[in-house]
């Protein structure tokens, strides 16, 4: 399991096709991990690109951390990861909260990002997007899992339920994730977003609650194109091959 030190913390990374000329860096979403890309999306991109995936702090197999879930800290981590891997510029893609991190990265470090793909990034001022944090409880998790099983068809067993419960408990009640996210609520309304001068592909589920946010971003960013994909917020799971091919075409052209 490849683990590297970034800003003095252990970060779990996975790389494919290291010899390729250009790099695609993939950022996963909150309460998820790099496996959202590992099995389907990354191998397709790796036919042409060097692909780098990493687990965000306290997620997957990266080190747990109490603080620093705001977008500045998250992009400091990403910048540190690029430095640790000697990557000067990358094509960047992020899903959900990872989409916000990717967008922030392109705004803060424009010279390091070639093209940008934002998949299903929510508007952090939307209470529903943040809401799960306020409502979290064991009952919430069990309810969430019941719904979650509709799309994945896998019923979560006792050990997984415990594992997930421990992760949520840790993130919700011990780390600063809640307050850090609330502090970011106006991120998409900041004028700098409209100044983004980077080819940007916005991928949103046609039936997603976040589609409106995609449309608003498309209005704001002059160099963006919005493509609806069949599905809801879970499009990387629902349509991994389609998503990978769209990202691939966009980065290669």
């Amino acid at each position: 399991m490849p683990v590297i030190k970034v800003n003095n913390r252990d970060v779990h990374i996975q790389e494919l096709n290291k010899g390729a000329a250009e790099t695609v860096l993939l950022v996963h979403g909150m309460f998820s991990n790099l496996s959202v890309y590992y099995f389907n999306i990354a191998p397709i991109l790796a036919e042409h690109f060097h692909v780098v995936m990493y687990d965000l702090k306290s997620h997957g197999m990266s080190e747990r951390t109490l603080h620093g879930y705001d977008l500045n800290s998250m992009t400091d981590d990403l910048n540190g990861l690029m430095e640790a891997l000697n990557l000067n510029t990358v094509h960047l893609a992020g899903y959900s909260f990872g989409g916000l991190i990717a967008l922030k990265m392109a705004l803060r470090f424009p010279d390091k990002v070639k093209k940008l793909v934002v998949i299903e990034a929510p508007d952090p001022k939307d209470e529903k997007a943040r809401g799960i944090i306020d409502d979290y409880s064991r009952e919430f998790l069990e309810h969430y899992v019941e719904n979650f099983t509709d799309t994945t068809k896998v019923k979560m067993g006792k050990r997984q339920m415990e594992r997930n419960h421990r992760m949520y408990e840790y993130l919700f009640y011990q780390t600063s994730i809640k307050s850090d996210m609330i502090a970011e609520k106006d991120f998409l309304d900041e004028p700098e977003v409209a100044l983004l001068n980077k080819d940007t592909l916005l991928l949103y589920g046609a039936d997603s609650n976040c589609l409106e946010t995609g449309k608003e971003l498309n209005e704001k960013i002059k160099t963006s194109e919005l493509t609806p994909v069949p599905g809801d917020h879970n499009i990387p799971i629902q349509e991994p091959v389609l998503i990978a091919n769209m990202i691939n075409t966009f980065f290669r052209n």
């Binding site: 991990n33 496996s35 099995f39 687990d55 997957g60 197999m61 019923k155 067993g157 006792k158 594992r163």
Partner: peptide
């Protein structure tokens, strides 16, 4: 189902 491995464990 039996081993209850999630996707990051399968990674």
């Amino acid at each position: 189902k039996d081993l209850e491995m999630d996707s990051i464990e399968i990674v």
